[in-house]
Amino acid sequence: MSNNKEKIEVKNLTASSNVTAEKAVAPAFAAKIDSCTLITSIQKDLLRAHDFAMSQDRSTTFVLSDFNLQLKAVVTQEGEKTMLALPTKQGDLDPNTMSTLNLTLRPVPLTVKPVTGTRPVESIEGIGSVLGGRLRDIGIADVSDLALASPEDLVKLRIPLTKANEFISMAKLMVKSNIAGVEGVDEQVAELLVVAAKIDSKEKLAQTSPEELTAILSDAIETGKVKVPKTFNLTVEDSTRWVASAKTLVDRTRASTQ
């Protein structure tokens, strides 16, 4: 076996190879890449692979859940930039000069945001107009948006993590309380309604068709948009009961205010 005894050979490169850039990484012929391009390039491939997995004409499919690359490359400096030298087809790098980089990329499902919401973020204690404006700048327009935001989004606005968690918890509570009191709607169902069907009030629930609601929720559960316990079983009867109960509650509120 040749292994490490193998010497770096000076080979004649073809016209297509990028020789000039590689001379800096003597003695090997390598292509340099910065870490941003490296990751973007991998991400592009992962997105294509995900599309490929989901386009399978089957009842089940495998998806990539973890991508871990222990990359061996020679680290070089080029001006301000740190570059990674990778071998090309034509030449190789000296194994003794290689560093190890560990990259782990994991697909993260995108958050589903409710379309509308009525209460401004300022209705939460501790959020004033200045912070409210900054939240709106990053797309968190109201309490419903805030309920689905990640603490990291808020930390980016220099909100301390504990405070960020507090704001999000409060927003979740407010959104869920909008549909609280509906028969059969516990915390689990409330979350399902808010996240999957974008229903964050009794009024919206009352106007929904039970069949349509069942289809939307079942789809969200099946595709993993919303995680529910394995024992969770959704039927049209459940949806019918929730919608009917919401209608009764809305009617009752209307009657009492008239």
């Binding site: 495998f62 998806v63 690359l69 194994p95």
Partner: peptide, 12 residues
């Protein structure tokens, strides 16, 4: 010393 390692995890 010089081999890269790619670990892939697939889930059903």
């Amino acid at each position: 010393k010089g081999e890269s390692k790619l670990k892939l995890t697939f889930k059903l």
